[in-house]
Structures are given as C-alpha cells and as structure tokens.
Design a protein around this nucleic acid. Structure first.
Length: 472
RNA sequence: GGGGCCAUGGGGUAGCUUGGUAUCCUUCCUGCUUUGGGAGCAGGCGACCGCGAUUCAAAUUCGCGUGGCCCCA
C-alpha cells in the first residue's frame, strides 16, 4: 500500500501516515481523537524531557480540576472574551440542571489563580511555580486535523507568580528557550522564536513569545507559547503579598504551554513518501532488528539476532522475529512507523560476524562488524539527528523572503513561503494585511535592529522585524 | 463566517444517473510452500453512517441529523 505523495498532496499524505503508522484514530466525536501507543509513547518522551528541564529549574507538578465555575472564568475580561466562543460547558448532572454551569477548562489560569490567591500571603511564598500535564477542550469550528487542530488536546501548562516583573520576564524567556530546545534538540524541528503581535497574543497577556515553523503545504504553524501576564490576573484574582517593606503588592505572572500539536508538526516536517521518520531522540524504539531466515538455517540467525537485541537493549530494540512474513514486508512495516535504524542479520552476516544497518532518513545502508556495532549505532543516531535538523533548517531558512510592500507579501505567502518585513505592529495595519493577503503575523524577531526602518504598511516608524504567513 | 463535494467490511473502493439481496484490492484468520525490498496457492470471517418519507421493493430517490474532505474570507 503505497502512500500518497507528500509534496503534491500534503493533507491526504498526512492523514494516511497517521493511519498507517497507527499514530492516531478518529472517534465518533468530531475533533476528539485517540492517541494510539505509537504516538503516546512519543508524547511520553517529550514529557520526560520537559519534566526534567522544569524540575531542574525548580518547577513542581500538580493537578487542578478540569471544571471551572463560570464566575471564575469571567474574572479577567480579555481572557474570557478570547476564549468564550470555544468553551464547552457542563450544565446538567443527570436530569437536574446545575445551579452554576461549569466550563471544561480551555486553559487553567482562572482555576489555578483562585487557589494561588489563597496560598500567597508573603514575599516568602514566592516564587510559586507549578506545572500540570492535562487535557484541555477548545470547541473550535474550523476543520479538525489530527494533532494539529483538535477540540480536546493534551498539554502541559506552567503557571508562575513572582514578586517582580524582572524575574517574571526572565522566566518567560527561559521557558521559551526550553521549548526551543525541545523542538530543535529533541525533535530536530527548527523554529522561529519571537514575539506575538498585539492582535495575536494570548487573551489576557502583556506579551506572548512563540515558536513558529513552516509546514510542507506552505502554511505556518504556531508551535508553542510562553506568556507574560503582568498583573492582569493577579489583580482580579487578588494574588497579593506583603513585601519586605510591609507593602502590599500584586504578583507578576507567566503561563507557558506545550501541546500534542508538536507531534503533528514533527510528523509533517520529517515524514516522507514511505511514511513516518522519527527523530532518534524522541523515538522510544530507536532500532529494529530483522533476522533474514532461510529454511533450515533459522537457528543460528535467530540466536545471533537475540544476542544483538541484548547488547543494544539501551536503545529500545524491537526484534521482528514474526514467522511467515517476508523480509521485504517487514522492512516496509517498520519504515511506515519511522524507526530510525534497521539492522538486518542473515546467514551471510552470521558467517562474517557482521550486520547491515540501514538509516530511515536517507535509506543509506552500511555493513559493520558486530564488534563495532555499538559505537556505529551511537554515531549513526547522532548524525541522523543533526542531518535531519540541518535539512529542515535549510528548508525553513530558504522559505523566508524579505518584503517591503503588502503586494510583495501577498506574492510570497501565496507561494507557500514566509515573508519577513519591518513593521509597526499596530492592530489596524495587521487587519489590513489580513484583509488584503489572507496572511497573519507569526512573530517578531527578539533581537532585530529596527533603527531608521519604516513600516512596510504605514510608512511610519518600524518597531519590529516580523514574520508573516498563511497559517493553521 | 461563506460556498462546494462526499459517507458502502479494519483500510481503500465499484455499484447510485435508470430502485430488485453489493464489486474488486488490501488487512485479518487456517493450511501448505516461502523469506537479503511489500511472496505464492487454496479456503474462510467481515460492510451499505443514523432517523424518517416514497415504494411490492431503497446502498441507489426525498427530508432531517451526524461525520469527513476541499475552496474562499
């Protein structure tokens, strides 16, 4: 069963990869999908990585309820304004109507900060930095796509309170850095890090830092976000403390989240016409061993294959000793699932004390002596990661085009690329861009010099060097 | 937000115009023979999205619902 061509028919290719690699499945509820073990185990790799980074930094995990009373959700006006159209409500228990309807969390600022206000009394209680791994529900009416846009998804959301704005600022950028490492060092996905525009920032934030990248169909996608909330929530939620001078102050807050959308981005960026290609560091199983069995000569090959499995166990090895399937069939089975390295061992190899190793991303095959297997596997996994990242990075960079007019921007984004321009950042000019080109701002460079540059829309002073694109 | 297309075994499909007990491929199961790139032969399990209407008879026509895909903003 050959897959659709990724380049010419991305969305069908994407759907097919997800089905044939057994990553996810649809359910009877639109936009609610099953994460099958093949994708959930990748999510677990991401969890492990993020948890270790968070904990090393002093963040602790907790759990808050999924039901948020209506009046809590409404406490911060911009926040509820942004989320209201997508909130799913619980209104009944059995046949009886609830006195106050309950929101199924679209995000947990409001329920967490209600607790925070009770716990924080003194400067000694700060900083408070908690994270939770949960599901959230946002009842969108755009077409759902597995991982990329679903009505229920999994994420981690971190929520912190600091005594000063400076500390909060520092953390917001640090978290963005951790996310960037997760994409780039774990998943080999290059991203653009930058500031969201006033129009596109999180509902209730002072500013949002995001990571953005480009999908193979030429649409950009927001990969994750880290928000500085200022005192926008601490005031209505009364998160205040007595400082060292016995003065009552409101806390400075951040929230930051990383979702299962990242799996979709990774699948799309790295997959090819044979199926999924897993970056080695997220792959729960990095190696599959396929014994080549000939009738009457099975025993020595299987014995050698089992010995290999034992010696490579730390990489998470699958030994495919299923009977009745041809070797070629097994090759294809594991290629669809994206296992980074395949080791073939047959009678010829047993004789020579060698094996054949094939790389999933390049299809390159090498024969190595068993004595050098461990070091070869290690170095192949390493170069596979960096090659995958470099290829994707080059592709992303080649897709960025500088423009200095709205018509120029339209041309670039219509050709499936990302436009970059000096920009004033105003909501009105972003509305104009959207209307004339269908593109949105993605984010703006954190460290670009904009001195004496003028805005490509209004001609006034530019404040940002900004990326624009059609987007998910 | 606006417009268009579609729904048939686990996956992919034919049949629909012109109503008559559903086609083919694949997966899966059994057996034999195979295995260095999706093996072969024989046999087997498995389906018309839901509700209603028209009709002797509905996968096919009509209405409503549910779900999916595409295009435009």
């Amino acid at each position: 069963m050959a897959l659709k061509n990724k380049k010419s028919n991305f969305s069908e290719w994407y759907t097919e990869v997800i089905q044939s690699a057994e990553l996810a499945d649809y359910t009877n509820v639109s936009g609610a999908m099953v994460l099958r073990p093949n994708s959930y185990s990748i999510w677990e790799s991401i969890q492990n990585y993020l948890n270790s980074r968070f904990k090393r930094d002093g963040v602790r995990n907790a759990y808050f309820p999924m039901f948020i009373p209506e009046k809590l959700l409404k406490k911060e006006s911009k926040h509820i304004e942004g989320f209201a159209p997508e909130v799913a409500w619980v209104t009944h228990a059995g046949k009886s109507k609830l006195k106050e309807k309950l929101a199924v969390r679209p995000t947990s600022e409001t329920i967490m900060y209600d607790s925070y206000s009770k716990w924080i009394r003194s400067w000694k209680d700060l900083p408070l930095r908690l994270n939770q791994w949960v599901n959230v529900v946002r009842w969108e009416f755009k077409h759902p796509t597995p991982f990329l846009r679903t009505r229920e998804f999994l994420w981690q959301e971190g929520h912190s309170v600091f005594a000063t704005k400076e500390e909060a600022d520092k953390e917001a950028f640090k978290m963005s850095r951790i996310y960037r490492d997760t994409y780039e060092k774990l998943m080999a996905v290059p991203v653009l890090e930058g500031l969201k525009s006033d129009k596109e920032k999180f509902a209730g934030a002072d500013y949002s830092i995001s990571l953005e990248t480009l999908m193979p169909d030429g649409k950009a996608i927001q990969a994750c976000t880290s928000h500085h909330l200022g005192q926008n929530f601490s005031k209505p939620f009364k998160i205040s403390f007595l400082d060292k001078n016995e003065k009552r102050e409101f806390g400075w807050q951040n929230s930051w989240g990383f979702t299962t959308r990242s799996l979709g981005v990774m699948i799309a960026v790295h997959g090819d016409d044979k199926g999924l290609v897993l970056p080695p560091r997220v792959a729960p199983n990095k190696v599959v061993i396929i014994p080549i069995l000939f009738k009457g000569k099975e025993a020595p090959v299987l014995k050698a294959a089992n010995a290999l499995k034992k010696s490579l166990n730390k990489y998470g090895v699958i030994l495919d000793d299923r009977e009745g399937y041809s070797a070629g069939r097994k090759f294809n089975d594991w290629e669809v699932r994206g296992i980074p390295l395949r080791i073939e061992i047959g009678p010829r190899d047993v004789q020579n004390k060698s094996v054949v190793i094939a790389r999933r991303d390049t299809s390159e095959k090498v024969t190595v002596k068993v004595s050098k297997l461990d070091s070869t596997v290690l170095s192949m996994l390493k170069s596979m990661h960096s090659d995958m990242f470099d290829r994707a990075k080059k592709n992303l960079m080649d897709s960025i085009v500088d423009v200095d007019s709205v018509s120029g921007l339209k041309k670039v984004v219509s050709s499936g690329k990302i436009a970059r321009a000096y920009w004033c950042g105003s909501v009105s000019s972003e509305d104009e861009i959207k209307r004339k080109t269908g593109a949105k701002s993605l984010n703006s460079e954190l460290r670009a010099s904009v001195r004496s540059k003028s805005c490509f829309v209004t001609g006034g002073d530019a404040k940002y060097l900004t990326y624009f694109g059609k987007s998910y």
